[in-house]
Design a protein around this nucleic acid. Sequence first.
DNA 1: CACAGATGGTTCGCCGCGCAACTACCTCCC
DNA 2: GGGAGGTAGTTGCGCGGCGAACCATCTGTG
Lengths: 155, 155
Amino acid sequence: MDGLQDDRITLVGLLVESYTALRTELDRGLERDADLPLLWFELLIRLARSPGHQLRMSDLAAQTSLTPSGLTRAIDRLVAAGLVERLPCPSDRRGAFASLTPAGLDRIEAAVGPHLQHVERYFTSALAADEQRQLAALLRKVRDHVNPGAAAVPG
Amino acid sequence: MDGLQDDRITLVGLLVESYTALRTELDRGLERDADLPLLWFELLIRLARSPGHQLRMSDLAAQTSLTPSGLTRAIDRLVAAGLVERLPCPSDRRGAFASLTPAGLDRIEAAVGPHLQHVERYFTSALAADEQRQLAALLRKVRDHVNPGAAAVPG
DNA sequence: CACAGATGGTTCGCCGCGCAACTACCTCCC
DNA sequence: GGGAGGTAGTTGCGCGGCGAACCATCTGTG
């Protein structure tokens, strides 16, 4: 009668455990094989997938669930590493783009291969192809429900 | 050719976004309605579900994907708040139990209700009952694959 | 055109985690 | 039973994120 054992609590627990364990492994692997923190990878790949290889700071923050302040620092580090540059936004002088440098593009392209291997090894190899599609569909429902607006990003 | 658009990358992205957005909402809600950080909730509920309302530090660390050092600090705070006490382990003098105090048990029992409402609102209401079971099954596969050994905890 | 409120980004102070080093203890094996 | 190596837990340190306050700019309203 507690509710301590409620199935929904367990479901949340499974999500938490899957996520944290997976994230740990992917981060370790990426750091080892591409010398790139997973957070950097996530930022760079968002940029790489965007038109012109650039994105407004606020859009990037929304997509990565980083706060504006956290994103500012993260971009600072990427700029210091020469992978990203800040470009002023011509139509809104408050705004700024984060834009991939050629070095940044090289770096992310070189990292994708190893990363995919890690994803396959630690994640998708646990699931058949149709299960992967099921999981994607279910997670998309959850994502759209809890964070509507993150879906509407593609240019 | 890029692989930047690989479905598996997207699947990882969905997992990340679902998790982070959900965690943010659940944490906010729990803090508001039960004045309890989500991490505290997770620790307390693990203890509440364990025989004798206590667990070895290392077991708790393994279950919560916290490092031993992180767990030590977290338990420090829970002890300071009077929700948990440390008990020496009679059979292994290196070891220690984290054990719920009566106040801790009250606190977690009072928090479960509101938390379940948040979970329902932000998470499970996006899915039909059979979809919830599907998702649980898929995540369990992933969890067992990436973190085998986390499964074998129940006393 | 002026001013009020909203919005994009950055900066500052604080907190919490992980890693590595350390201590205490246990266990295995000779 | 004694020493080597492993395991449980804690501590020192640095990194990195968040929230709040802040500045600059935009937008709407009279």
